[in-house]
Design a protein around this nucleic acid. Structure first.
Length: 432
DNA sequence: TCTGGGGTCCTAGGACCC
DNA sequence: TCTGGGGTCCTAGGACCC
């Protein structure tokens, strides 16, 4: 009798075209039509409906280049609404936590679930996968795919199969397959589909005649390690079912916090850049406090338009050490303004500016007032519209949507009986 | 003429992820 | 005219130390 190794198992649950799916939930007229969600300044398409993908809209495609295509096929383009997506994401994650006590929220639309010890609860894990799909669809209204495997890398790959190959109907469990069946699938997948194998490495692998996932699995561990480093070595082990990337279900504090934005129009005046950097200081400091950290250095940077290759480029940044670790907005803003003056040059057309909080440490001293500028005066109109749409769609008595705006938590409530909105503004408990 | 060996810390750059 | 924003980790090389 052979002892079977205690095998660990992961699921990756990921929402299809997350941003577009959220928008469709609030506006069902968008269903079945080509839809894209755009990035800041309506720059790039960052989420595409299947219909838009079929028309050839690529991920991160510059939207101004798609105008003809959009007009011709009636592609609907929407500006992004992150507060809404974050809210929907939380709802999804709450459903997933009913399936496993160990959930790692990997991104706004993806979670890893540790499945160890759960198999007695289900006839098989594919059944569980379909149950997850059904429940998220019913309770939250969003379509998800489920991939299952003995490592996170294989669960990711399985998730890709679940979404791309109709035969799986949205759930793919690599662990339920016979080894030769799995190998056939690996031989049909390009190596670039593997988590951690990006554009550059795919190119290099191609030159080594490594084209498919199966080719990669058959490659020599030593030579991969030598050419690509320890991360690739780990990826290889994971492809062989040896789990070496653990579940991180305790969210760790950020090591750096960035806020930056490209300007809609190019900017030449210091004053305007100062205004935006003041905003970035407030945003980053809020996040800093939310995770109860302090920072010991502030990095401010400015850039010209990198796409205007016909014009001279200027990229500069300055790291300003702080006298002591702090989360005081006044100190951080002051340091940022000082650094900005050091990198600002007259006569340059700036396209982008940003701020990074560095050398973060957890705990530490929290002091001062968090907000002294007008960041909280964001428009609540889009949120109101969204709330309206949710109510129309679900017809419930009341629905609540909370959002952090500046130093306040804003909660809107819609009462279907009285047909009235009520809003609450609460002080956000950031400082201890 | 000859020009060690071992260690740490820091930074820039590269690659990846969503 | 118009091209996103926010992260992580690893490595190589230089400075510096004894």
């Amino acid at each position: 009798m052979g002892m079977s190794a205690p095998e660990t198992s992961f699921a990756l649950v990921d929402c299809d075209q997350f941003y577009v799916s959220c928008e469709r939930l609030f506006n069902p007229h968008l269903c079945g039509k080509p839809v894209v969600v755009l990035s800041n300044n309506d720059g790039c398409a960052i989420s595409r409906s299947p219909e838009a993908k079929a028309l050839g809209v690529q991920m991160a495609a510059p939207w101004f280049l798609m105008q003809d295509l959009a007009k011709k096929h009636g592609i609907i383009a929407l500006s992004s609404n992150y507060q809404l997506y974050a809210s929907m994401s939380n709802k999804c994650m709450a459903v997933l936590r009913e399936y496993s006590p160990r959930v790692e929220v990997y991104s706004i639309d993806e979670s890893f679930l540790l499945l160890d010890g759960l198999s007695p609860l289900w006839p098989d894990m594919t059944t569980m996968g379909h149950d997850i799909r059904r429940k998220v669809q019913t309770w939250v209204g969003l379509p998800v795919g489920v991939g299952i495997g003995p490592t996170k890398t294989l669960a990711k790959l399985a998730n890709h199969l679940a979404k791309k190959r109709p035969v799986y109907k949205g759930v793919c469990d690599l662990q339920s397959m016979a080894p030769d069946e799995a190998e056939q699938i690996y031989a049909s997948l390009p190596a670039g589909e593997v988590w951690g194998v990006g554009y550059r490495i795919t190119e290099q692998l191609g030159r080594m005649r490594i084209h498919t996932v199966q080719d990669l699995r058959n490659a020599s561990q030593k030579s991969l390690r030598q050419q690509f480093g320890v991360r690739m070595e780990r990826t290889l082990a994971e492809l062989h079912g040896i789990s070496c990337i653990p579940l991180e279900d305790v969210a760790s504090a950020r090591k750096q916090i960035v806020s930056s934005r490209a300007y809609g129009e190019r900017v030449t005046a210091l004053k305007e850049i100062e205004e935006s950097v003041t905003m970035y200081a407030a945003r980053t400091t809020e996040r800093l406090r939310r995770q109860r950290s302090t920072c010991a250095a502030v990095h401010v940077f400015v850039e010209t338009d990198r796409f205007r290759t016909d014009e001279p480029q200027y990229n500069n940044g300055r790291t300003v050490p702080l006298p002591e670790p702090t989360d005081d907005l006044r100190v951080i803003t002051k340091a940022a303004m000082w650094g900005l003056k050091k990198v600002f040059r007259l006569g340059i057309k700036y396209k982008k500016a940003g701020l990074m909080l560095m050398e973060l440490s957890e705990g530490g001293r929290h002091q001062g007032t968090l907000f002294d500028s007008g960041v909280s005066e964001m428009s609540s109109a889009p949120l109101m519209q969204a709330l309206d749409a949710i109510n129309q769609r679900f017809g419930k008595d009341t629905l609540r949507l909370a959002s952090g705006l500046g130093q306040h938590r804003w909660t809107a409530r819609f009462d279907m009986v009285s047909q009235r909105y009520t809003t609450n503004w609460n002080e956000l408990p950031l400082a201890r």
